[in-house]
Design a protein around this nucleic acid. Sequence first.
DNA 1: CAGGATCCCTACGGATACTG
DNA 2: CAGTATCCGTAGGGATCCTG
Lengths: 101, 101
Amino acid sequence: MGLSKGARKVLKVLARRGASEVLWALGKGSARFSDLEAVLRLSPRTLAERLRELHLMGFVDRRAYAEVPPRVEYSLTPRGKRVLEFLMELDRVVETLEEVR
Amino acid sequence: MGLSKGARKVLKVLARRGASEVLWALGKGSARFSDLEAVLRLSPRTLAERLRELHLMGFVDRRAYAEVPPRVEYSLTPRGKRVLEFLMELDRVVETLEEVR
DNA sequence: CAGGATCCCTACGGATACTG
DNA sequence: CAGTATCCGTAGGGATCCTG
């Protein structure tokens, strides 16, 4: 009974600061660390942590290029896209809830 | 861009300890404080806080009876049922994600 | 019974400085 | 550029005791 352990874990990660914003931003296409940092107004510490978590859950792909200066591209995996769609649905659900109010 | 403020707030509340479990339990019918406390293994402090939050968001209805000893019945509102369905869908989504792995 | 009050520990996250 | 390391304040939540 209750949510599965996996679902609770996903829920927790998505609720952390910047998580949904990262997914949303990557939904528009791949981006670099500094791009995300600028757009999302997150400290590098938090952004790095969030990207690591999302990567570990298989929602975000990380591609590093051996250049100078270094370049790292982040993008959504198919799983990430699925979760992003879910978030968008949450948005719609909450919207209809407001109407009912 | 990004989730609406309201959606982020809902997400945060749902991710907190015991929140989804409370909704899930109430999905089976109304229950009293002590019922929930026993089933969910939450400290009274946390359970009370969670119920207050869910009530404030309009997901849970609180009905107190002026008896001795006191009796309080909690139940889902229509909005609460809608959110619970959403959580159940998260469960299914995460399940399919595991398969893809 | 249904909580509130208090104490206390842990996790989260910002600011700043530093590095491969 | 893409992070990591450190310091530190705030929020979440358990344990315990108390009360209308």
